[in-house]
Write a protein that binds this DNA or RNA. Sequence first.
DNA 1: GCATGTGAATAGATTCACAGCG
DNA 2: CGCTGTGAATCTATTCACATGC
Lengths: 225, 225
Amino acid sequence: MPDRPRRIPEATVARLPLYYRALVEMAEQRTPTVSSERLAEMAGVNAAKVRKDFSYLGSYGTRGVGYDVEYLLFQISRELGLTQDWPVVIVGIGNLGAALANYRGFSARGFRIVALVDADPAKCGKEVGGLVVEPLADLPRIVAERDVAIGIIATPAAAAQEVAGLLVSAGVTSVLNFAPTVIAVPPGVSLRKVDLSIELQILSFYQQRRDEAAEGRRVAFGGLT
Amino acid sequence: MPDRPRRIPEATVARLPLYYRALVEMAEQRTPTVSSERLAEMAGVNAAKVRKDFSYLGSYGTRGVGYDVEYLLFQISRELGLTQDWPVVIVGIGNLGAALANYRGFSARGFRIVALVDADPAKCGKEVGGLVVEPLADLPRIVAERDVAIGIIATPAAAAQEVAGLLVSAGVTSVLNFAPTVIAVPPGVSLRKVDLSIELQILSFYQQRRDEAAEGRRVAFGGLT
DNA sequence: GCATGTGAATAGATTCACAGCG
DNA sequence: CGCTGTGAATCTATTCACATGC
């Protein structure tokens, strides 16, 4: 085992999936080798960042040549844990939960949705994306039996913290939260969140700034309104 | 006009929506005043960060007391541009696009979905979330007539860059991309992205690290397998 | 020669710790 | 006295620039 340097910066980890995606694309078109420059372009970052990021993983490139696509792809897959498959449960089968259940992009990367769970008895028994929705009460058994590692919360905000608690006590240690609320998990559990309206609000902030600036310029140029 | 300091750090902007949400909640339960400590707890950050963040907006608190909920809420709304409403178009009405069209959380914050657009003629004319799906060809007219400011891309990866180009040339200057691919926009256009499988991959990275560490401990303690 | 790998420099974000003020 | 507001210290991330080695 080569002794690569240990701590990988968070910012780097967050970019590995971008490189992974770019490399998959290159591998599909049988490109044998790639430079940091080209990879940077595909991942939407700059070349220095690519090289620095890879330097945390080890020395996988060849000076004067670039990176071997297949080899680098394997290294990054391994680093990201994509060489194994991860059983996933989705809790909350509303519009978003159902869309996630149908999303094809997960399975492609080794994330296998093994259960859909909802608190609403009316939803249980229905089929969504090839799986039958099961009651929330069965969550502990489902997690244990199917060895669920990752839980996705797609419930309304009011239910999210309770569901998170259930997931964690059932043994799930990675949680992805889509509910528009802050949830707490104990140390040793990873939590990531995706909040759709927060993204729009951030866009709104910058949009407004631009509008104001444009307004300012119009006034400065003598009110051509 | 009070001369507040101008540049607000990106990291701060990204947290303003969290404070906004917490303050809406406090306002609903008629809490008149709130400390940075309490607000930090609700937003899932720490108190020093809250105070620093607010210091970029101006001095809106009272020493020894805290922040006036209503007043601070107004200031943050204004800063985020939530006092106006933003017409939004969603392009790509698959599972995810349809879920977004039905999502109630947008309208609540002043984001009004004014059009759904899809390239597939079979989808056009269908009603989704109270709106009729319109053809992609009408996008320029739709953006102009309905004064669309924000475009949401929920198409497959292969179509995303083309759609982004169409949005931008139609005059949209804020784009939220859900397609799992990197897209480029010209300077002066804001772009944010949400990639569901990237989030899972990041969780997978840390999950695997924990699993390895647990494995390591088991071995170290003498192979109790 | 050429692209990687990396120390050094810079920029940005977070946290500390306490002065300032109601 | 209590809590805000903020410089200073620290930590993290990005970028630069070039020595290194194929």
